[in-house]
Structure formats: structure tokens, C-alpha cells
Computed example of a mutant assay.
Amino acid sequence: MIRNNWTREEVEAIYNLPFMELVYQAATVHRQYNDPQEVQISTLLSIKTGGCPEDCSYCSQAARYHTDVKVQKLMETPEVLAAAQRAKDAGSSRFCMGAAWREVRDNKDFDKVLDMVKGVNELGLEVCCTLGMLSESQAEKLKDAGLYAYNHNIDTSEENYEDVISTRTFSDRLNTIDNVRKAKLSVCSGGIIGLGEGDADRMGMLKTLANMPQHPDSVPINNLVPIKGTPLGEQEPASIWDMVRTIATARILMPKSMVRLSAGRLDMSYEGQTLCFMAGANSIFSGDVLLTTPNPAVSNDKELFQILSIKPREAFKEKKQAAEVNFIPSVAEAMAEIL
């Protein structure tokens, strides 16, 4: 049953199950609602890098921190479309574009992003953007341009949020997600573990996502990649056991969502990633760089997929399935009229 009214006690009971039992239950739910041999491959490109006014304590792109990231202006549309084509050729079905902005502004840069969205959509890829906060009208413009999904992570629990970010509120995050949903765009929203939070914060983050009016279509689960020069530059990332436990809980709470094994994969063994897939992860980011952090090589992902007999998920699968379902009754009606 798909639920949106999980209690804190229920989430805690699931999260704290013995590890093997938790993975078993998550794998069972996963097989009920998804093809366990299918994984969505997404590619994420930073189309505008660095210089962000926010103070997210994990981020290499915050202007106030001294990191190795060099500020780069918004890319030109032909460059982005060429990158999208390379991603498609490498097996990606979704192409995500990220800009280091606090919020979207109605200006020439946003017009350029709209052109990028149109171009990537015409390549037959699901187009996703993560551009910071945006209004309902801006979400509508992105939708009209052909945007498929919008990413806006809540990062952590509401209680822990101010310890991670002070330049925007938890409510700001939720408002943007509401605007995305009102525009009938696919919602992509997850969080990060390894920020120094406790288990209670991980449970709180998952509970917030699972109790939204509609579960996010995609739920990225990131493990912190410590960046030198940021406040969390010396923080130890979460263990693989914590990563699997978080993914398994997300899968049980949100059975139909794509649970994306996101940042932090470079330090995971094939065995660790396999545990994540068993626990319900069915999406990854592919490509050598994830915005500004390193990611496993495409060749490594292909090797792992071959070992596990995993097949890439095709683009727009939900829409195609819905079209097939709608087609069947119409065929039946036509036959009835003939007879």
C-alpha cells in the first residue's frame, strides 16, 4: 500500500530492523513495484559553476568558501547539447543540468536555460534541472520548454537543517517542491547522509519525503563527499551500512519512487553498490564528474551492470506505460463497435 501518513514510530521501527531483515523486506517491496534488474542511468552536468551566495556547509560551489572550484559562467547551448548527446550515446536516459544559483531569476540566463531544455528534450532524453528556488510561473515555463523533472533536495531533517544551511529555510525548500508539483513536473528530492547528523535526522528526512502529498518520483540518497575548504571538509562520510539502511528504508516508505544511489559511489566497492541495489536503489548518476565531485568511470558502471545482469531503464517509461494502458480500452471499444 502506498502511504503518505507514516508516523515517527513506524519509520523508526523500519529503520532499526536487523540489517538482514531490513534488506530482505526492502527487496521484497522493490520487487512488488519495480523491475529489480532495471536501473535508470542519469547524467548530471554543471552548466554554471561556483560563485553561489548560499552557505551550504558541504558545497564546493559556495562563494564564501575557499575550494579548488573555479567560477564558470553559464555554458553555451551548443556545448550543453553536445554533452547531452554524449550522455545519450553512453547509455543515459535522463540528462540533468545544475546551475549554482540561489534562485532562478527571470533574465537572459534563464531564457538560455529554457533553450537548453528544449534542445535536450528534442534529443529524446528526460530533461531534469536543479537551479535553486523557483516560482510556480518559472516552473510552468520550464514545463512548457519540455522539462521532465526538477531536482530540489531537502538535504536533511527539518530539525538539523539550520546546522547545515542558514541562508534559506527548510520551508523554502518545501515551497519550491510545491511549485514544481503544481506545474505537473516530476519531483526529484532526496538528501545527504554523513553530514554529522544522527539516525533520528535520517529518519526525519525520509519521513518528510514519504509524507508529502505525493512521493517524489525520484529520491536521490547522497553520501557526503568531503570538500577541503568547506565546513564539512574534514567530516567522515557515512558507512556503507548506513547508506544501505537509508536506501532500504526509503524503498519501503516510497515503493514506487526511483531511489537514486547518488554522490559517494566512487568510494564504494562493487559489493557495496550491489547491496544498495538489493535494498531498492534503481537509479545512478553516470559520468566521471558529478557536478564538481568525482564519480565512477562509465566503463566501471558498465562492468558492474554486466556482472549483475542489470539493464538500463528506457527514457519516458512511465509515459509509455500509461499510453499503452489507455490504448487497450480504446482498442476493446473499437472491436465492440465492429462486432
Rank of each mutant, 00 (worst) to 15 (best):
D144Y: 09
G233L: 05
P220V: 00
L209S: 08
N34E: 04
D111R: 11
I193G: 01
D288Q: 10
L339I: 11
K256R: 15
Y65A: 06
S239L: 12
D115L: 15
L308W: 10
L266A: 13
S60R: 02
R8N: 14
P296N: 04
G119L: 03
T169C: 12
G50D: 06
I154M: 12
E324V: 03
L142W: 08
V71L: 11
K256M: 15
N222I: 01
S257R: 07
V298Y: 10
A238D: 14
K112W: 03
T293D: 08
Q235D: 09
A62E: 11
E10V: 03
S283H: 00
K143F: 05
E21L: 08
E318Q: 13
I192R: 09
Q25K: 15
V71M: 12
T7R: 03
M335V: 11
E333D: 14
P255A: 12
A13Q: 07
Y270I: 10
D55I: 06
L125I: 04
A84W: 09
D217V: 05
E314N: 07
T28P: 02
K317T: 10
I193V: 13
Y24R: 15
R260E: 01
Q306M: 10
P213Y: 06
Y58E: 09
E303D: 15
M97N: 00
E159A: 14
R102C: 11
L206T: 11
T274K: 11
I14C: 07
R173H: 05
Q40R: 13
M243V: 12
R94P: 00
V298G: 02
E103T: 05
E271V: 10
C96M: 05
V117C: 10
I247D: 00
D68R: 13
N326Y: 13
E126G: 03
M212R: 14
E318N: 03
V259P: 03
M205G: 02
S42C: 13
G51W: 04
S283V: 02
S262A: 13
P237Y: 11
E38Q: 15
S46P: 01
R245M: 04
L224H: 10
V180I: 06
R8W: 13
L22I: 04
T230G: 08
G132A: 03
Q235C: 12
A90N: 14
Q37P: 01
I252R: 10
L17D: 05
A279T: 10
R313G: 01
Y270K: 14
S262F: 07
P36E: 13
I47L: 01
D178W: 10
S137N: 13
D172S: 09
G280R: 08
C59N: 07
I284F: 00
M254S: 02
D242C: 06
N121W: 10
E337T: 11
G233R: 01
N16W: 09
L134V: 07
L224V: 07
H215L: 01
V298L: 14
E333R: 15
G194K: 02
Y15L: 08
Q40W: 05
L22R: 12
P312L: 00
N160Y: 15
S92F: 00
R173C: 08
T274W: 12
E236K: 15
K108F: 10
V71D: 09
A263T: 02
